[in-house]
């Protein structure tokens, strides 16, 4: 309880300080409007619905990238786990993957796939899928051999073993992968929209920035942060409940 209070203070105190600095014109509205102004702006943006299409577009693309990466990531991870040679070959790629600036490939995607939604979804997918594969591999590695033996004793086939024994056992790891995939899908899609695209929240923020329209830009930034943090926190809560039941603390 006390921790919740401290957390609240840790959010509210800096905000209050910012509010005072902005009201005193110590920070000009051209740099940063007062937090209360941003909040009012966010309310106005939501009420007017000017950006509903952009919000919907971004969320759809994030959702697509996320679902694709989870499905492809788990299947690929499960397949690679069995193919030892392929895994040995891909392991160095996985370990350096996130050191590679994926956004640099974005222009190529635009040339190949055109200016539609595909390049954004692909960037989100490419960022997300590897964390899903790596988490799946880690999860399958964590399955104790005795459970594999148990599946054999119970005469389960290979597919049934993966479906009802190994994947459920690996679920906590898969969940970590899912959480990372959500975050990466957001980062990829919004980043791609920001760099070069005509739609979505990322584009709208860039557009507002180019026009020095702080009354739109800051509320939209806040909106993105709120969506990303809310999704992340709900997943955390869900994960915590699942783990508590399994006693993984």
């Amino acid at each position: 309880m006390r921790i919740a209070l401290y957390r609240l203070l840790a959010v509210l105190l800096p905000l209050a300080l910012l509010e005072i600095l902005c009201r005193d014109r110590f920070i000009t509205p051209l740099t940063l409007p007062a937090p209360s102004q941003i909040l009012l702006g966010l309310w106005a943006v939501i009420e007017k619905g000017t950006f509903n299409a952009a919000i919907l577009k971004t969320l759809t693309n994030v959702g697509l990238a996320f679902v694709l990466s989870v499905v492809v990531g788990i299947t690929t991870g499960a397949a690679i786990h069995r193919a030892r040679l392929l895994r040995a070959l891909l392991e160095p790629l996985f370990s350096t993957y996130y050191a590679i600036p994926i956004y640099a490939f974005y222009p190529l995607f635009i040339v190949v796939f055109g200016l539609g939604d595909a390049p954004q979804v692909l960037i989100g997918f490419m960022l997300a899928v590897v964390s899903m594969i790596v988490s799946t591999l880690a999860g399958l590695d964590s399955v104790p051999p005795v459970l594999g033996k148990t599946a054999l004793v119970l005469q389960l086939g290979p597919v049934e073993t993966v479906r009802s024994v190994t994947l459920p056992y690996a679920a906590p790891y898969l969940f970590t992968g899912v959480k990372l995939a959500v975050a990466y899908a957001f980062i990829g899609v919004i980043g791609a929209e920001f760099i070069m695209s005509g739609t979505g929240l990322g584009y709208e923020i860039r557009f507002a920035y180019d026009n020095l329209d702080n009354n739109v830009m800051y509320p939209l930034i806040l909106l993105i942060l709120l969506i990303a943090i809310t999704v992340n926190m709900s997943l955390d809560r869900w994960e915590w409940r699942l783990r508590a039941r399994r006693g993984h603390g």
């Binding site: 980062i187 990322g202 923020i205 943090i229």
Partner: peptide
């Protein structure tokens, strides 16, 4: 860590 920092 989970926030798209490019938005900032």
């Amino acid at each position: 860590n989970s926030v798209p920092k490019i938005a900032l």
